[in-house]
């Protein structure tokens, strides 16, 4: 077994180190839920450089093999690096060509080990990951955090989504949600996030995974309504502010 002794000095001396101590370009929330036939997942396409909206067409949901779909928030470069590892993993899995394949449960567990091992080396991948999938008629939806915290649930959301989207999901989610209802529910969540999360952008994708396969939608926008009086005159009722 490798040594797990921490070296506290690496925590305080970032000079010359090759570790992610803070993220550069980040994506915001991912929201996902189980529905009647599989999993639906939504994420917007913004890539923020601090508070600057630096990229506007970042794909944050990707298929992993035939049975899994991965969504990520957090450091975009770490996510794209992770995709390279996963593509290699899935390629080697396919090369066996023996009728066995890694399902969403296996990929989720693998990701958990990767994230946890990196945190043990004080060199985390700066992401929150959402993994959804269907294999042999079995739906799977789980999450992994930057430091390896992981769980499964009927609906999950990263970042702001955990604060703003999950209360809605807890209220309205059902096991037998149809595709249309599922998309409508996700759009409701994404609209709230768009209004309230400053780094969210109005350009998003919705991905679907079922026993039939994976489809990721073209980017599109949500209809918004900014005509509320509080939006028209935000300083009313806040005397003395700007």
């Amino acid at each position: 077994m490798e040594s797990n002794q921490a070296n506290p000095s690496i925590l305080c001396s970032p000079e010359g180190s090759q570790r992610t101590l803070y993220p550069y370009v980040t994506g915001t929330s991912v929201v996902a839920l189980k529905y009647k036939d599989g999993i639906l997942m939504a994420a917007d396409m913004g890539g923020s450089y601090g508070s600057t909206l630096r990229y506007k067409s970042v794909e944050r949901m990707k298929p992993i093999g035939k049975h899994s779909l991965l969504g990520a928030s957090g450091e975009i470069s770490d996510f794209q690096e992770l995709l390279k590892y996963l593509d290699e993993l899935v390629l080697y899995d396919n090369m066996w060509d023996d009728g066995n394949s890694l399902g969403p449960k296996e990929i989720h567990n693998y990701l958990t080990r990767v994230m946890y091992n990196r945190r043990n080396k004080f060199n985390p991948l700066w992401n929150s990951l959402v993994l959804g999938g269907v294999k042999n008629g079995e739906k799977y939806l789980g999450m992994v955090s930057m430091i390896g915290v992981n769980f499964e649930d009927n609906h999950v959301a990263t970042g702001f989504g955990n604060h703003l989207a999950r209360p809605i999901l807890r209220d309205e989610w059902r096991e037998d949600l149809s595709f249309e209802e599922g998309v409508k529910l996700l759009e409701k969540c994404m609209r709230v996030l768009l209004y309230r999360d400053r780094s969210a952008v109005n350009k998003l994708q919705i991905a679907k995974i079922t026993g039939e396969g994976i489809t990721i939608s073209q980017p599109y926008s949500l209809k918004t309504f900014w005509g509320f009086s509080a939006f028209q005159n935000p300083t009313a009722g806040a005397e003395g502010s700007w």
């Binding site: 023996d98 449960k105 080990r113």
Partner: peptide
């Protein structure tokens, strides 16, 4: 440990 699933026999 890595995948929480059984190792395929052929492999």
């Amino acid at each position: 440990y890595t995948y929480e699933s059984p190792l395929p026999v052929g492999r």
